[in-house]
C-alpha cells in the first residue's frame, strides 16, 4: 500500500480547501446559533401550559428529530419546485443547507434547553416572585442565565455535531470540504489521500472552534460549581428535614 504523500501535503496549500473551511465554519456557526435561538423558543413553547403552543412545539421536535438531515436537505433544496417564490433563497445550496441545519439542530437543542430550564431550582423563581419581579423578568434575569450555563456543555457538543453534519450539504453540491475533496478524487482517483486531508481539516476546525467554546464554558466554571453546590445544599437540607 502506497500513499502519495506529496499529493497529500499539496492539499494543504490549495486555496479551494481554505475557502471550503470558511464555508463549513460559517455554515455550522450560523446553523448552531440560529438553532440555539429557535431551539430556545421551541423549548419555551413546549414547556408552556397552553396547548396552542406546546403541541406544535412537540410535533416540531418529534418530526425533525425523526427525519434524517440528508432527507430534510434534499427536500428543502427542492422546495422551490412547490413554491417558486422561495427559489432565489432555497435554490442556493448554502441557504438550503443553513435552513435544514437550523431546523434539525433546533429540534435537538430544544430538548437540551428544556433540561437546562428544568434544572433551575423552583426556589429561584420563588425568590424572584418574592422580589415582585414579573414572569418575563424572572426568566430574563434569573432562569435563562442559569439554564444556559447548565446546558453549555451539551450545547458545545451540538456545535461539534453541526460542524460534522455540514458535510452532508455536499449532497446538494455546496463546495464545502467533502465536496471539494470529492471533486478532486473523481478526477485523480487518489481517494485515500484526499479524504485523509479532508479529515485533517475537519479535526482542525473542531479542535479550534470546539476548543474556543470549551474555553468560554470554563470561564463560567465557578458558576457551574455554585450550581452543584446549591444542589448539594438542597440534598443536605432534605436529609436534615427528614
Amino acid at each position: 500500500m502506497n500513499l502519495d504523500w506529496g499529493y497529500f501535503f499539496s492539499l494543504f496549500t490549495m486555496s479551494a480547501f481554505y475557502q471550503a473551511c470558511v464555508t463549513v465554519i460559517t455554515l455550522s456557526t450560523l446553523g448552531w446559533f440560529f438553532g440555539l435561538i429557535l431551539g430556545f423558543v421551541t423549548a419555551c413553547a413546549k414547556m408552556s401550559t397552553s396547548r396552542w403552543l406546546n403541541i406544535p412545539a412537540g410535533v416540531f421536535i418529534w418530526f425533525f428529530r425523526s427525519v434524517p438531515l440528508l432527507v430534510v436537505l434534499v427536500f428543502v433544496y427542492n422546495l422551490p419546485q412547490l413554491f417558486p417564490a422561495t427559489g432565489p433563497f432555497l435554490g442556493v445550496p448554502y441557504f438550503a443547507g443553513l435552513v435544514s441545519l437550523v431546523v434539525t439542530e433546533a429540534a435537538y437543542m430544544a430538548e437540551i434547553h428544556r433540561s437546562g430550564l428544568l434544572a433551575v431550582g423552583k426556589g429561584q423563581k420563588e425568590a424572584g416572585h418574592a422580589l415582585n419581579i414579573g414572569f418575563l423578568g424572572i426568566q430574563r434575569l434569573i432562569v435563562i442565565p442559569q439554564a444556559l450555563r447548565i446546558s453549555m456543555p451539551a450545547l458545545t457538543n451540538e456545535y461539534i455535531t453541526a460542524i460534522k453534519l455540514s458535510s452532508l450539504v455536499s449532497a446538494i453540491s455546496l463546495p464545502e470540504l467533502l465536496q471539494t475533496g470529492q471533486r478532486l478524487y473523481s478526477q485523480n482517483f487518489l481517494v485515500m489521500e484526499t479524504l485523509l486531508a479532508v479529515a485533517v481539516y475537519y479535526v482542525g476546525i473542531v479542535t479550534i472552534f470546539g476548543g474556543a467554546l470549551q474555553w468560554l464554558e470554563k470561564r463560567w466554571m465557578c458558576l457551574l460549581v455554585s450550581q452543584t453546590h446549591s444542589l448539594m445544599n438542597n440534598v443536605m437540607l432534605y436529609a436534615k428535614t427528614q
Binding site: G123, A127, A130, L131, I142, P145, Q146, L223, S226, L237
Partner: peptide, 27 residues
C-alpha cells in the same frame, strides 16, 4: 411584603452585591 426563605435562594450566578442590586434595578 418581603420574604426570606429556608434555603436562602440566592441567585448563584450573581455576587452578593449583585443579588441585592437586582430587584431595585428591575423596579
Amino acid at each position: 411584603i418581603g420574604m426570606v426563605f429556608q434555603n436562602f435562594n440566592l441567585f448563584p450566578h450573581k455576587t452578593a452585591l449583585e443579588n441585592i442590586m437586582l430587584a431595585p434595578r428591575y423596579h
